[in-house]
Design a protein around this nucleic acid. Structure first.
Lengths: 233, 233
DNA sequence: TAGTCTATTTGCGCTGGCGCAAAGACAAAT
DNA sequence: ATTTGTCTTTGCGCCAGCGCAAATAGACTA
C-alpha cells in the first residue's frame, strides 16, 4: 500500500473529497478499506446491491452494461484517483453497470454505511456528490447526442480525444492512451463493430493521425483528430 | 393558480420533496414562484446559468440539446408534477439542455439561493436530490445502451412505452400519449429521421399496435409493442 | 368557404456501416 | 523455438435506414 501522504494527495484530487480540510481527509482515509484486484476480475456486477464506492490508486477499470443478448456497452473507464460506484452513496440502491479491472488495480473503497456517516459529518461531500452526479448526467447526455447524430468516424475520434485527456501520457510523437484498448473495446464505446473500428484506425494511421498497436493507441495529431470529430461532411 | 391543497398533493409526488412532513412542504411552497408559459416558448436555454429548478402543475415541456449543426436531440419530456432543471440545486452551474413548452404550462420554480437554504434546513431533500440524479444517470445510460445496440424499430417501441408510462391516459381502445408528439419529435428522441419514424408508425398501425393522428399517438396493444421492443430478430 | 401553414405519407435510389470469413500479427507460455 | 491463444486486418456482399421529392391530409385563419 502507498504511504499516507501519497494517498492524501491522491484523494484530494477526487471530486467527491475536493475542498475538504486535511483533518477531514485523514478521517476519510481512516475509514477506507484498501484492496487489490487482478486484471480481468470483476469489482462489482450490474444489479448487485451498491455496497462500496471505489477510488483507484493505480490500475484501471472498465464500466459497462450488458444487453439481453449479452453484448457489452462500455459506458466509462476509470484510472488512478478516479471514482466509480458512486451510487453507494445512496441507501439501498444497485450498481447500474459492471466494473471489471482492465489492468491490475490497487484501490480504496468505503462502505455505504461509512459513507452516510461521512456525508453527515462533512456536508461538503454531499454537495460534491451532487456536482459529480450532475456532471455525470451531462457527460452521458453528450454521449447520447453524439451517438444519435454523428457518424462512426466522428464518434470514434471523440472517444479517443476523451480517453487522451483522461488517461493520456505524453510520448515522443504523440500522446499514448495508457489503457489496454482493443478494437472491440472501442467498438463497444462507440456503438459500432470491431471491424469498422479497425478500418477507421487503419485509415487514420495512413493519414498520420494516430499510431496503433495491439491494445494500444497513440494520438499523433490531436488537432487533426479534433478536426475529424467536428467534421460534418 | 391552483388551490394550496392541490399543490401540496402535487408536490408530495415530486421525488425531490418525497417524504417531507406537511410543515416542510408548506415551507417549500412558501418559497415557490408561480408562473405560466405559452406553448413553444422557452423556459431556459442550454448553457444559461442554472437559476431555477422547475416543477410543472400543468402542461408539458420538451428537454433537448442542439448539435453544432442545429439538429435537436430530445433527451426527455416532463408533464404535470415532474421536475426539470435540477442542476439549479448546485451553485454556479449551467443548464445542460433547453426547455421548451410543448403545451401551455403552469408551473412553480425555486431559485438556486432558496434551494440551497432549503437543502440546509431539510437534509432529506439532499438525499432525494442525489437519488433523483442517480436515477437520471441510469435512465440516460439505458437510452445510450439502446441507441448503441438496437434497431430503430425497437428504439421507437421503447420510446412509446416510456411515454405511455409517463404521460399516458387510458382511452377506449388503448392508452393515449397525452403530449403533442410529431414524427419529427419521435425521430429526435430515437436517433432517426422523421421519414423512418413515419414508415414504422404506418406499419404498426396496419398491424393494429398503435393508432396515430396528427401529433397524437395511442398505443392500442402495449404487449405487442413490448414484444417489438425486445425482438432482436 | 377558401386559403395557408404545418404535419404526414410514400416512392425511389443510394450508401454507410454491418456481418462473415479467412489470413496475418503479436505476446505469452511451454 | 514452437505452440497457443488472442487481437487485428482486409475483402466482399448485403441491407437497414437515410435523404430527397412530390403528393396528401389536417387544422387553423380570415
Amino acid at each position: 500500500m502507498e504511504p499516507t501522504d501519497v494517498i492524501m494527495r491522491g484523494l484530494a484530487q477526487v471530486p467527491l473529497f475536493a475542498g475538504l480540510p486535511a483533518a477531514a481527509l485523514q478521517d476519510v482515509i481512516q475509514h477506507a478499506i484498501s484492496c487489490r484486484t487482478e486484471k480481468d476480475s470483476f469489482i462489482f456486477h450490474q444489479g448487485d446491491p451498491a455496497e462500496y464506492l471505489h477510488v483507484l490508486a493505480e490500475g484501471s477499470v472498465k464500466l459497462f452494461q450488458v444487453t439481453e443478448e449479452g453484448q457489452q456497452v462500455i459506458v466509462r473507464v476509470a484510472g488512478a484517483w478516479q471514482m466509480f460506484g458512486g451510487v453507494a452513496l445512496l441507501d439501498e440502491d444497485t450498481y447500474p453497470v459492471s466494473a471489471q479491472a482492465a489492468e491490475a488495480c490497487q484501490g480504496l473503497h468505503w462502505s455505504s454505511a461509512v459513507l452516510r456517516d461521512l456525508l453527515q459529518r462533512y456536508p461538503l461531500i454531499s454537495t460534491n456528490a451532487m456536482r459529480w452526479m450532475a456532471e455525470h448526467v451531462r457527460e452521458t447526455q453528450d454521449m447520447f447526442r453524439h451517438l444519435a447524430t454523428e457518424r462512426v468516424e466522428q464518434r470514434l475520434a471523440r472517444i479517443l480525444l476523451r480517453l487522451m485527456r483522461q488517461l493520456g501520457t505524453p510520448r515522443e510523437g504523440g500522446v499514448l492512451i495508457d489503457f489496454p484498448l482493443t478494437r472491440q473495446d472501442l467498438a463497444e464505446m462507440g456503438g459500432t463493430t470491431l471491424f469498422t473500428a479497425s478500418r477507421i484506425l487503419s485509415q487514420w494511421e495512413k493519414n498520420g493521425v494516430v499510431k496503433s498497436g495491439r491494445e494500444r493507441v497513440t494520438v499523433s495529431d490531436p488537432v487533426g483528430l479534433a478536426g475529424i470529430a467536428e467534421d460534418s461532411a
